[in-house]
Write a protein that binds this DNA or RNA. Structure first.
Length: 498
DNA sequence: TGAAATGTTGGGGCG
DNA sequence: ACGCCCCAACATTTC
């Protein structure tokens, strides 16, 4: 049996050529990769490894859109590593079993990886580090996909920050993050003869087949390190200069759309920092936009810090007084929301953009999330789960923190009474209706001044636009004015609670 | 990284 | 000329 061959093998002598397993996780790139660079610097023979850990994450496992992205990102990484000389090895199962077994099988003297900050991942990694050390294998972890490690940004009392702005000030005050590392020029491959064959990516079934719903994703995205760099370059070459104004208008290409690339580590925040700062120095007019953009990278660090210090963040209210909040299990409302059939055009446009492309513009995410938790009073965890399944940038820390932010239960959260008006938000941020027309085409012919509130149009206007409310497009499933009042009343019930 | 309710001010129409 | 009212525009408070 292959497995026993892998298990029973005499240790190599210490004078032998160094040999290392480099375990890739959400850092699917070869440049600015400290673990890969450390192995290459020793001139080690390398087994680059990726493990599909479906069980370990439990009910927080990869969503369908993320699986699609992962497939293509791994394909890109595998191509790059093969070209450098050390093909990627794929395995599926519990990492705490696979990593030590493969390390033994290739007779590695070291295993390198970059840290991750999800509670389940930390648990797995801790266990593996101990197992490897017991085996006499060096296990070394490097800083993960943040500007700073979660324990580096501390208050004067030494604790983690609970408010973003002081967090960000403190993080910036730590100075420039480390300079990104170059990609290795070439890699030596560890011999594979004692290994079970690498799993084949296509056998993992990460991409949908029957039906193939990924057409919209393919049209919208280029996963992989090259795609990530091209996306950042396109953003820094133009839109970043007007980022502060343009970032709120979902019909415009005013945002970076870097989030899935960052989530999978196809580009590192340190690279983003470096190249964005360079762009700001080269063009003084872009400087402000650069800082507004980097501040968003700061939110990403802040959210990961929150998760690191509060492992229950994806499940439990950060502010425990929300435990008493009278949520509703409005199944029909939830379904209408997921399908983009709430009768509020901005919300429906967002939910359909999400379904089609695996992405939603952030301004619309806030409005759509507010609608679910405040207009429908559906628990934020339902929304969190839907986003986790459908977003290509689904990220446990960002998703949990942002949903709690919207619900009002989070750290530095929006106050509960901050309730988005889906009509006003549409009129403000999609003033010409272009975003709604793109994603809710059945409303395309409505005049702009009515497109965010079709139910206010008179019969003649509706007929002229071929809109039949209740048939071609739903009437609002709730009256926002009333829903707002009900939500405020509900909040009164928990206001004094601890 | 809200919105609605309430308060204040000032211009213009009008008797 | 003056007081009165209306209301838009803006500011402040409240949720």
């Amino acid at each position: 049996m292959q497995q026993s061959a892998e298990t029973h093998r005499a240790p190599r002598a210490a004078k032998d050529v160094p040999r290392a397993v480099v375990w890739f996780r959400n850092d699917l790139r070869v440049s600015d990769h400290a673990a890969l660079a450390a192995a290459a610097a020793r001139d080690a023979e390398i087994l680059p490894l990726y493990i599909l850990e479906d069980e370990a994450a439990g009910d927080l496992a990869l969503g369908a859109a993320s699986r699609w992205w992962l497939h293509h990102s791994l394909q890109a990484l595998a191509g790059r590593l093969a070209a450098l000389g050390a093909p990627l090895h794929l395995a599926c199962g519990p990492a705490e079993e696979i990593v030590p077994r493969l390390a033994r099988a290739v007779e590695a003297d070291a295993v390198y990886w970059q840290r991750r900050y999800e509670p389940w991942g930390i648990a797995v990694d801790t266990q593996i580090k101990a197992a490897l050390k017991a085996d006499g294998v060096a296990a070394e972890s490097f800083p993960g996909g943040l500007l700073r490690e979660p324990w580096e940004v501390k208050t004067k009392q030494g604790g983690p920050y609970g408010v973003f702005t002081p967090f960000w000030k403190a993080e910036v005050a730590l100075g420039e993050p480390d300079e990104p590392l170059p990609a290795p020029k070439a890699l030596k491959s560890a011999p594979r003869d004692a290994l079970t064959e690498s799993a084949r990516l296509k056998d993992w079934g990460l991409t949908p087949t029957a039906p193939d719903w990924a057409g919209g994703l393919r049209a919208a995205w280029t996963p992989g390190e090259q795609g990530a760099r091209a996306r950042l370059k396109a953003f820094l070459d133009g839109p970043v200069a007007r980022y502060q104004e343009a970032r709120n208008r979902p019909a415009e290409g005013g945002v970076s759309r870097l989030s899935p690339h960052l989530h999978f580590g196809e580009i590192s925040p340190r690279q983003v920092w470096r190249w964005a700062r360079d762009a700001g120095r080269a063009d003084a007019a872009a400087e402000q936009g650069v800082w507004a953009f980097l501040r968003e990278i700061g939110w990403r660090d802040f959210n990961h810090n929150l998760l690191f210090h509060n492992p229950e963040l994806p499940r439990e209210n950060y502010q425990s007084k929300f435990n008493a909040f009278p949520w509703r299990e409005d199944e029909a409302g939830y379904r209408a929301w997921t399908r983009g059939l709430t009768g509020y055009p901005l919300i429906d446009a967002g939910m359909r953009e999400l379904w089609e492309t695996g992405y939603m513009h952030n301004r619309v995410r806030m409005a759509a999330a507010s609608f679910l938790v405040k207009d429908l009073l559906v628990p934020w965890r339902r929304g969190e789960a839907w986003f986790r399944d459908t977003l290509v940038d689904a990220d446990l820390a960002n998703n949990a923190a942002n949903w709690q932010w919207t619900a009002g239960s989070g750290a530095d959260a929006a106050p509960y009474f901050r309730i988005f008006n889906p009509v006003t938000q549409g009129q403000k941020f999609d003033p010409d209706g272009a975003y709604v027309r793109r994603w809710v085409p059945e409303l395309k012919a409505l005049p702009t001044k009515l497109i965010h509130a079709p139910w206010t149009a008179d019969a003649r206007t509706l007929a002229a636009a071929k809109v039949e409310l209740g048939r071609t497009y739903p009437r609002p499933i709730v009256d926002h004015g009333r829903a707002r009042q009900i939500a405020l009343d509900a909040y009164q019930e928990i206001k004094g609670a601890a």
